[in-house]
Computed example of a mutant assay.
Amino acid sequence: MIGTVCGVGYLRPAPGTWGSAVALPLGWALHMIGGFPLLALAAVTYFIAAWWATTQMTAGGADHDPSEIVADEVVGQWIALAPLSYAAWDRGIDILAMWPGWIAAFALFRLFDIWKPWLVGWADRRGDALGVMLDDVIAGVFAAIGVLILAGLAHGVFMR
């Protein structure tokens, strides 16, 4: 249940995209209940639980990263949403007013998770449960940085 996010990982096609998509309303709910601190705590807690679940689900198998494991996508997507959650929490902004950032967070996270550039690919090549988790964490960090850069461009921060 943890690794497949209550069975979402069995959806086809593109289970990773389904996992990322389900992370959006879950991330919104966490933010609405407890703001950025709860989203951050949930990401850390779910990372630990998902790492354990991934270890259990891959033990003794030839496939170190079965497609039905999508808990890593949830964690990575929450990291990609972190700049939006923090800004909304810190500034008292309705997080849904930042809808372009949500689209950017989703698109950038999926791009980095599929493309696997640099450190994302390094983590994926580890071939173990921690690598399964870390490639999405790093993709989430890259996406979060992308969200910050795009927000800076959109709001003219880099033009001053």
Score class of each variant (00 low, 15 high):
Ile33His: 07
Gly35Lys: 02
Gly35Tyr: 01
Pro37Ala: 11
Leu39Asn: 01
Leu39Trp: 08
Leu41His: 13
Ala42Lys: 07
Ala42Tyr: 07
Val44Ile: 15
Tyr46Leu: 07
Phe47Gly: 06
Ala50Asn: 09
Ala50Leu: 12
Trp51Thr: 08
Trp52Val: 13
Ala53His: 13
Ala53Ser: 00
Thr54Ile: 09
Gln56Glu: 13
Gln56Leu: 11
Gln56Ser: 02
Thr58Asp: 15
Gly60Trp: 05
Gly61Tyr: 11
Ala62Met: 12
His64Ala: 12
His64Cys: 04
Asp65Arg: 04
Asp65Tyr: 04
Pro66Thr: 03
Pro66Gly: 08
Ile69Asp: 04
Ile69Lys: 02
Ile69Tyr: 01
Ile69Asn: 01
Ala71Ile: 07
Asp72Pro: 09
Glu73Arg: 06
Val74Pro: 00
Val74Gly: 00
Val74Asp: 00
Val75Trp: 01
Gln77Asp: 08
Trp78Thr: 05
Trp78Pro: 05
Ile79Gln: 08
Ala80Phe: 06
Leu81Gln: 10
Ala82Met: 05
Ala82Phe: 14
Pro83Lys: 02
Leu84Tyr: 05
Leu84Glu: 10
Tyr86Val: 00
Ala87Glu: 15
Trp89Gln: 08
Trp89His: 10
Trp89Ala: 14
Asp90Cys: 10
Asp90Phe: 15
Asp90Thr: 13
Arg91Lys: 14
Gly92Lys: 01
Ile93Ala: 08
Ile93Trp: 09
Ile93Leu: 05
Ala97Asp: 09
Ala97Met: 15
Ala97Arg: 11
Met98Thr: 14
Gly101His: 04
Ile103Ser: 04
Ala104Cys: 12
Ala104Lys: 11
Ala105Pro: 06
Phe106Gln: 12
Ala107Lys: 06
Phe109Leu: 11
Arg110Thr: 14
Phe112Thr: 06
Asp113Trp: 00
Asp113Glu: 06
Asp113Leu: 02
Lys116Phe: 05
Trp118His: 13
Gly121Ser: 03
Trp122Thr: 10
Trp122Glu: 07
Trp122Ser: 03
